[in-house]
Design a protein around this nucleic acid. Structure first.
Lengths: 353, 353
DNA sequence: TAATCTTCTGTTATCGTTCACATACGTTTC
DNA sequence: GAAACGTATGTGAACGATAACAGAAGATTA
């Protein structure tokens, strides 16, 4: 038996059955305005009996708000995305908003599709955590121009009416490299350099700056770049990249004594390559990752890495967004950059001399 | 300068400016009905000029459908969820539907909240991929009763009006264990037994059945259970569980020669414990995982595991859902069980004698 | 030539809810 | 005892879009 084609119960269905007007039922359901205890009970009984559910479309249309915000994620498989989504949801839930997530993993076209489907549904605001790209960014500016509250997270973007929250990846990269330098390392490789802009580039720049600040030689052979794997590849897929890059680095006549990998997945791949070669971590080679994914503390040896304050990024972004959503007046621009933290575990050690 | 409080442009704003009625504009925007080329161009010009966007709420309200489906995910950090979401999205996108994702990671209460926010917004149907639980299931039945098309994926649930798609985890567990038995192993441990029902239990049951079918002794000391970590913990967190369980198994006077882990994360944890103990994989100990997460092929040694056809589950679920959404007539129940596939890599080998 | 069809546009009502206002009665206050 | 207030309900319009129908002009057919 199929029930799907039942017409749905409306406020006035309930009203009719309860012998009141729909306005009264509305008041009961939304718990505002005056309703006598007697009427309230009667209405609630009928609501239950008919299994009434309010129609959010009609409600949203009339109220001109939906109490819903959207989140657009690139790379849903990344633990970073997962934690970001969770932390955002915690805030939105607490403040009485629903959170709808859309994925856009490949192209600006998908970004636009996600933005459109969310604005179509009149979400009250949107948090954007995709990789930045021309087409998506253009549409973002348009949306903002149209008045949609927008906050960007962990992503390059600038608009005088959109807040941003990012981690200081440059300084994070600097810290990681400085840590290796402090341990006496001089031949420090970088795995996963990328030509495109964005957060990954910043990590690499931090590495370069640290080398320069310490007057170390910058050796291009020690920097493995982004060749076949494109930059949009999901995080975990870079493990293979790390494995292969490390193989190449180990084959160098003058192999590095330390490695800084663009992210933990890459680092894990590198660790596997090192183990396979018979070298020991950290006594023969030190390695540092980036992101502090949950697995980082469980690798063997436990991975030294740079933690970006993901949860804080999420909660801040959500708060910035809701501030815009709820404000009647113009809102001042927020562009928050959060500090990264070096987490020293067992994969790095003093250089043997 | 803040633009958010601009009132938004409606159909009739466009109509007024273009000197036609809103009906004509609607026809242009939706590309249906007759409109002269001249009028169409004029309207499109005004649409662009005013930056008009249609209001999906009003549209959905009138049309009684939103061309949107919802997906409720438990454990967003799990690669399985990511791939499921992607495959579902591929289908919905191609068929002209938007996909909104909600997360419900902890409780039945969160399930219900997710269901409510989706039905509130009048999605045309919902795909459910959370862990089953009493409260959530009850509400699901209610929703289905109310006529909301529902499909469940990878999850225990039965309702004569909701399709289900699952992988045959029992047979998967059986295959994994049989593989180890075929390699000559007799002392086969299981890591991550769980008392609660669900897919994880099935894997364990498959293990037990394979032992029985081969007349092997069932040794409870070789089955590490679900003690501190609760069953709702996200997938990756079980790596620690695997590490600790393996430590315990290695300390047994008569240690196992093979291990079947409830999932790949657990297996990776176990691998780390084994390596740490100085034993070699697979020559000293064979290990099999479950899920074939992307990282499984990158571990060292590459992990033998059981692959569930995640992508197929997603596309089937989406197709089943849209079939229900688009059908005017009653729909026959589908309860699809897909076969798992054993992926033999390098972490399993013939028992040394 | 009349009847029919095709093309184009407009009119009206409606989707389900809530806002703003109106009404009515009882209670307080000075 | 009249003005003011609190409580309880109802009325009508509106949110922005579209389905259904209607009308008018030109093209085609019988």
């Amino acid at each position: 038996m199929r029930t799907s084609l039942k017409k749905s119960i409306t406020l006035s269905d309930v009203a009719k059955t309860a012998g009141v007007t729909s306005m009264t039922v509305s008041r009961v359901v939304n718990q505002n305005g005056y309703v006598s205890e007697e009427t309230r009970e009667k209405v609630l009984r009928v609501v239950k009996e008919l299994n009434y559910r309010r129609n959010g479309l009609a409600r949203g249309l009339k109220r001109q708000r939906t109490d819903t915000v959207g989140l657009v994620l690139g790379d849903i498989a990344n633990p970073y995305s997962a934690e970001l989504a969770r932390s955002i949801r915690d805030v939105t839930t607490e403040r009485g908003y629903n959170l709808f997530i859309c994925i856009s993993e490949h192209s600006g076209k998908e970004d636009v599709a996600a933005f459109e489907s969310l604005t179509d549904h009149q979400v009250d605001g949107i948090i954007v955590a995709t990789r930045s790209n021309r087409m998506g960014d253009e549409y973002l500016h348009e949306m903002i121009e149209r008045g949609v509250p927008v906050v960007c997270v962990g992503r390059d973007f600038h608009d005088e009416n959109a807040d941003t929250v990012t981690a200081d990846a440059l300084n994070g990269g600097f810290q990681a490299t400085q840590h290796l330098i402090d341990l006496g390392h001089k031949k420090i490789a970088f795995i996963g350099a990328t030509l495109s802009s964005g957060q990954n580039l910043k990590r690499f720049q931090g590495y370069l700056q640290a080398l320069k600040a310490n007057n170390l030689k910058i050796d291009e052979r020690l920097m493995t770049g982004n060749t076949e794997a494109n930059d949009d590849a999901p995080g975990y897929s870079t493990e293979k990249l790390g494995y292969e890059a490390m193989k190449r680095l180990l084959a160098l006549p003058n192999r590095p004594t330390a490695v800084f990998a663009r992210n933990d997945f890459t680092a894990i791949g590198a660790i596997n390559a090192i183990k396979e070669s018979g070298l020991k971590i950290p006594s023969d080679i030190s390695i540092v990752g980036f992101d502090d994914i949950p697995m980082a503390m469980h690798t063997y040896p436990a991975l030294t890495t740079v933690r970006q304050p993901t949860r804080r990024q999420g909660t801040l972004a959500a708060e910035f967004l809701l501030r815009r959503v709820e404000s009647k007046a113009p809102v001042e621009l927020e562009e928050k950059v959060l500090e990264c933290e070096l987490i020293v575990r067992d994969s790095t050690a003093q250089l043997k001399r």
